[in-house]
Design a protein around this nucleic acid. Structure first.
Lengths: 208, 208
DNA sequence: GAAGATGTTGACCGCATGGTCAATAGTGGG
DNA sequence: CCCACTATTGACCATGCGGTCAACATCTTC
């Protein structure tokens, strides 16, 4: 057993694998960005937060942009996975819609920091020419999911006729708006709010 | 007539008043922010764009933050004024809603740059402690307008019963989502899209 | 037209930040 | 136990930025 030390206590823990280190740094970046904003999120502060010397960051990432890009990937992956794993997409469409709103609303209470950081980074990550690196165009696959879901609803009669893309974009807009609103109002009850918005959308998109 | 020169040509134009200068600088800031993003919008570049020496900026503004705050005020004021002046709020509620969506959609085609800059600055302006200076809480007066409008609709029977605040927040979310979507898709037809979203909302919130 | 006030300039500074690097500690294989 | 290799450190550097300032230009007023 070549383990150096097994107690996972204070400072003398076992050496991390490269992936663990990368993740530690990326998570520190997330935390710092969420707290002070993208522009003020210093690499020095990020390494400090990760409990790591400054130079090490460049052993794992080539520049600030790369750190942030990894952070986006990490965050988006975690959020999406948690959502998908928790909603039964084969249920009746209105139920799925309600569940998505509800789950997303709860997310704002359990993943406040991550959502803040994600928003922050997405809004600020740029290419070297100054254009946004992540745009709404990257929503396309999300829209595709929505279109598929709502299309099924149209076929089984739970969603009224109408342009699916408009529905999908409206659906996503309500989700994003709900997230922003709940983030800004930490005291609001997420579930009652989610219900309200879900009903608004379903009344708008449902047959009858 | 102590005018130095009357021809409004190339470089030797008449001296600007303080307000004009401030506005020139603020507008240059808007343009630069829209192009390269908040973080990369250098004060040097802003003054260059305004056709003014670097030091002059500090004659009119005390620091970068103040420039950006003025820019927010300037932008929000112009956008709001143009919207309000163009929509007859005493018309039947559904007509008002449709008009707002339509006018806003057209805005994304006539004020692309300004909307970009506004979004950019709002997302990045911070207090010295790192918290956002402009948050969704500043939407409160906008929500108040929406609540008033939709409340009138409930009283005259064009809007169905339901929590007005939820309606208002959903309404604004659809507007913001539409703006973002049209900004990301410059080729989409704004009016047909606006109609679609308006109908989605009205189906959701209307009586019947 | 002198004098004071105001507008304008560009050179300059301090500093924080992203990024580099030579040196050291730790790890694993033979 | 040694050697090669990787992880890790912290001092260091270059740069670009926000911000200052003394000098100069221009207007206003009497």
């Amino acid at each position: 057993m070549p383990h150096t030390s097994d107690h996972p206590s204070t400072s003398a823990r076992r050496r991390r694998t490269p992936d663990e280190r990368r993740e530690e740094i990326v998570e520190a970046a997330t935390a710092v960005v969420a707290e002070v904003g993208y522009a003020n999120a210093t690499l020095t502060e990020i390494t400090r937060r990760a409990g790591v010397s400054k130079g090490l960051l460049w052993h794992y990432f080539s520049d600030r942009d790369e750190v942030m890009q990894h952070a986006v990937g990490h965050l988006a992956g975690r959020l999406r996975a948690a959502l998908v794993s928790d909603v039964d997409v084969s249920a009746p469409v209105p139920d799925v819609v309600r569940a998505v709103f509800a789950r997303t609303a709860l997310f704002t209470r359990t993943h406040r920091q991550e959502l803040r950081a994600l928003d922050e980074i997405v809004h600020n990550l740029r290419t070297s020419e100054g254009r946004r690196r992540v745009t709404l165009l990257d929503y396309e696959d999300v829209y595709a999911d929505h279109v598929a879901l709502l299309g099924r609803g149209q076929r089984d009669g739970t969603i009224r006729a109408g342009d699916l893309r408009t529905f999908a974009v409206g659906y996503q807009a309500l989700i994003d708006g709900m997230i922003a609103h709940l983030q800004a109002h930490p005291d609001a009850d997420p579930l009652t709010y989610a219900d309200g918005v879900a009903e608004l959308f379903l009344h708008g998109a449902a047959s009858r």
